[in-house]
Write a protein that binds this DNA or RNA. Sequence first.
DNA 1: TTGAAAGCGGTACCAG
DNA 2: CTGGTACCGCTTTCAA
Lengths: 330, 330
Amino acid sequence: MNLQQVARRAKVSTATVSRVINNASVVRNATRTRVLRAIEELKYHPNLQARSLAGGKSNTIGVIVSNLENPFFFDIYKTIAALAHEHGYEVLIANTDYRPEQLAASLRLMIGRRVDGLAPIVSEMEPPLIAELVGLRIPVVFYDVGTPSETISSIRVNYAGAVERVVEHLYGFGHRRIGFIGHHSMLGPLNERMKTVLDAVSRRPGLEVRTAADEDTLEGGRRSAHALFASGFDLTALVCVNDLTAVGAMRAVRELGRCVPTDISVTGFDNVKLAEFCYPALTTVDIPRQRIGQIMCAQLLSARGTPPPPGKEVLIEPTLVVRASTGPAR
Amino acid sequence: MNLQQVARRAKVSTATVSRVINNASVVRNATRTRVLRAIEELKYHPNLQARSLAGGKSNTIGVIVSNLENPFFFDIYKTIAALAHEHGYEVLIANTDYRPEQLAASLRLMIGRRVDGLAPIVSEMEPPLIAELVGLRIPVVFYDVGTPSETISSIRVNYAGAVERVVEHLYGFGHRRIGFIGHHSMLGPLNERMKTVLDAVSRRPGLEVRTAADEDTLEGGRRSAHALFASGFDLTALVCVNDLTAVGAMRAVRELGRCVPTDISVTGFDNVKLAEFCYPALTTVDIPRQRIGQIMCAQLLSARGTPPPPGKEVLIEPTLVVRASTGPAR
DNA sequence: TTGAAAGCGGTACCAG
DNA sequence: CTGGTACCGCTTTCAA
């Protein structure tokens, strides 16, 4: 089923069929009807690959995330997808599972598919890959890395500030021994986020911290918490890298017959919907995912004809949300 | 950056570059090296659209789900994606949000992209659309609809049996007034799943049921539960269409100052990971999502060269998993 | 082992 | 308004 066959059946040229499909220029009504009928009868579906090859535009943007299963990433993706559709774009989504090779592969795939814009929202973005993307001629918006240029934008979240507030909150409650739960991609010794925690801790007298890391899943949070408890460190609070791991950690606390927050306080990060629905509801840090998605789209989607806006850097300031999972140290 | 430019730089023909890239046929080593260097220097990325246009194969399969945010769908997708990658396929994922128009659009998109196989895992699949897909020349595997043929497969889950077991479990605990929480796509008066519940209920003397439906989200489950309670129906158990809505319903119960399971028993469906991590842990029905994904892949991915297997129908038998969210009626 | 050239299925410009 | 046709970038015979 291709243009040719439709053209033959409707007794017109392929050019005319193309015009009807894209309702570009004017086609006599009778002709249009004939063509439409032919399309219908042949169950013709335009080959989009051929179309974007010929047209030089794919009308597609690419989104790459570390873990689509984590609502944090999913919510951003969802916002982007909705906005993109409104603007007539399709979106290709890829998942890296925090694996650098997988990220490289996804990047290659997206570039190969000639996406018109790219949003790699991953924590495993390394310098060489960033450099690669800078050379591209398409708009790219990074998350927490990269420096803005003509085609490059960057969204940065003030994690340090947020961690500071979380630690302050706990410190104020009298907690002095805190466990930090991360996930595997943070294992690098110089990890940015891990450092912010250590910094916040070192600034407060008498505060001790111990860390653990596992998968970015409910199960990962649970295992990390168990590891921390098993280490013999008598912690009174658990700071988790995100809400998913925090919910996992809370289960571990229950399994040990302890109680949140009377025995152990637990905090999350992101403020995903689940943070309100778990029990007890989670004290966490809100990161405005919808706004992040919107900003990304604004940088990626050039409203038909308009040249894309120049790259810029946007700073996001997260806010602490106090719920029921934190309280005074025992 | 295209084959031409690489060819020129390496002083060979485009045919040779193509050979190197796909390492098809034999290329002299010196030539190969020159080509590879040119590719490197030019940062050349093959245009995949052109490739599949020329090759007549996209090496891509399409997966369409109703709600990717629901781990039930996500887990199936994840399994399919992993298996597909192992076989050298890419997977395109689309989300319909239970909207028939969106399903139609996604289907068009996938067909337009010339996927080599298609798995529409959606509850809003309507007869006309099914008929459309049957005409396609590619393998399609349906979920809970469709009749097998040469290219069509169908996976069916014995919901009726599962619901029967859930109701029996509750009935045995002495529950006589049950609330059923569905989601919007079940609003059709003749809805299949809704009927299975009503059937199971009608078969037991003295058993009453009241239903409510909202979004397929945590929030939707919560709202449904509140609606049920507000109706004045003095229920002692809530049967939810899936785990996500069940967790939402449990929050509603808490908000009313009632307790699960002492005041109200709650059941879910699917047995997603969250069902073990919520509190109290959810009594639910396990649907083997991984197995479903595997079967789908087996029908969709023809191992290089091998013709795809003929379509068939597979029946899945879910099992009841009893946890802490159900107990004797008060 | 390599090159030339004919498609693959569209789009878009130029004539008519 | 409509048709003819030159690409878009790659794969794949067919010859050399």
